[in-house]
Computed example of a mutant assay.
Amino acid sequence: MPLAELKNAPKVIGTKQVKKAIAKGNARKVYIACDAEPHITEPIKAACLEKNIEIEMVESMEILGHTCGIDVGSAAVAIINE
């Protein structure tokens, strides 16, 4: 399961933090929830494409948040370089 790598990997959670990680060049892979609002996710997708960062789509914000160990959903999560 591709989400398994999120459990112990260094990561940032949430769209603002993911955008910062992408801009700084720290993001290795970005997970985006399919049910998140497009106006939130499209700029992240565009930034990933521009910086050549792998994108993994996840079924829901709830699953993404739960996988990261938080009690709320998350629209985006990035695995970062340490």
Rank of each mutant, 00 (worst) to 15 (best):
L3I: 13
A4F: 01
E5S: 15
E5M: 11
L6F: 04
L6N: 05
L6C: 06
L6H: 09
K7Y: 01
K7C: 05
N8K: 05
N8P: 03
N8H: 11
A9T: 03
A9N: 04
A9F: 01
P10S: 14
K11R: 15
V12F: 00
V12S: 09
V12A: 12
G14I: 06
K16P: 13
K16V: 14
K16H: 15
Q17Y: 03
Q17D: 09
V18A: 09
K19V: 12
K20E: 12
A23S: 08
A23P: 08
K24N: 10
N26S: 13
N26P: 11
A27I: 07
K29E: 11
K29N: 05
K29D: 06
V30H: 01
Y31W: 02
Y31V: 09
Y31Q: 08
Y31N: 05
Y31L: 05
I32R: 11
A33G: 11
A33Y: 09
A33I: 02
D35R: 04
D35Y: 02
D35T: 14
A36R: 10
A36I: 10
E37W: 04
E37D: 10
E37Q: 06
P38L: 09
H39W: 05
T41S: 08
E42K: 13
E42M: 10
K45S: 08
K45D: 07
A46R: 15
A46G: 08
A46Y: 02
A46E: 14
A46M: 11
A47L: 12
A47F: 02
A47W: 02
A47H: 03
A47Q: 10
A47I: 12
C48A: 14
L49S: 10
L49A: 06
L49H: 07
L49K: 15
E50G: 04
N52R: 07
I53H: 01
E54Y: 07
I55G: 03
E56Y: 03
E56A: 13
V58D: 01
V58H: 01
E59F: 06
S60H: 11
S60M: 06
S60D: 05
M61F: 00
M61R: 09
E62F: 05
E62D: 13
E62G: 05
I63T: 15
I63C: 06
I63N: 10
L64P: 06
L64Q: 12
G65Q: 14
G65A: 06
G65C: 02
H66I: 02
T67P: 05
I70A: 02
I70V: 02
V72K: 15
G73H: 12
G73L: 00
S74H: 08
S74D: 05
A76E: 06
A76R: 11
A76W: 00
V77N: 03
A78D: 13
A78I: 07
I79Q: 04
I79W: 00
I80W: 01
I80F: 03
